[in-house]
Amino acid sequence: MSSAIDIARDQSSSAMYAGRPQVLLERSWLAFRSTTWVPIFTGFMEPVLFLLAFGYGMGSLIGDVSTGTADIDYTMFIAPGLLATSAMNGAIYDSTWNVFWKLNESKLYKTMLSTPLGPMDIALGEIAWALLRGLVYSIGFLTVVSILGLTPSVWAILAIPAASLVAFGFASFGMAITSFFKTYQQMGFINFVMLPMTLFSGSLYPISVYPDWLEKVIMSLPLWHGIELVRAFWFGSINSGVFLHISYFLIMIILGLFVTSRRLRALFLR
């Protein structure tokens, strides 16, 4: 039987990383088993309700949407955008409020850092959990959409890995931002950004309706890249723009992990 010391010695553990992020997932699973399912269900239902209300409500008024290359049924048009939004919501739920709680109220990360775990284990483990929730949300959403017969082809399933990348990016970035917040008022800032971004990022209509300057602003925001990425895979229209979207999220992920682990060290190992 290996002792704690042998384990620590075996792994070439550095001050930042002990190579054990999966124990964070174990911990989240233990805590998750005994929590209520209500917030999870509501987070998942939000985009579904949007799809039903806008797709069937507005859709009957609007008819088809022109994307420049083709005319698409309105409900079909908004489905991939809402899938990306769903992945984002799932990832943000865990990586902001839950992380805030563990940083400032329950001091869970502080406790973890008094064991051989390092800041990078915590950042990776927590972001992976948030990513998982985003994945579950997007699979749930895809299931509903498939049942309603709104998927263009079986290739729409490729939208799931795309949505996972979106969730990963938001989880990583969300945790990094949260690590700077100390009060509930500051946390309110996240909602202040999320709601307009959700409404204006082109999930419900093409952003070409905006004036030029606003279009540029929206195109600099992550959700627009997420929606375009998922939409591209959804309709199987992979073009060079996809690489830009993927790069955008890769940068978000790397930046988020870097900042989060540095912040955890600055907060609890100084």
Binding site: A4, I7, L30, S34, S106, K107, M112, P116
Partner: peptide, 21 residues
């Protein structure tokens, strides 16, 4: 600084897992 979301034995279990046991 016990883990308030977990039970007594889960607290002991997960802490051991942090050590890689």
């Amino acid at each position: 600084n016990l883990d308030g979301e977990l039970t007594v034995s889960e607290n002991l279990f997960i802490y051991g897992r942090y050590f890689g046991l």
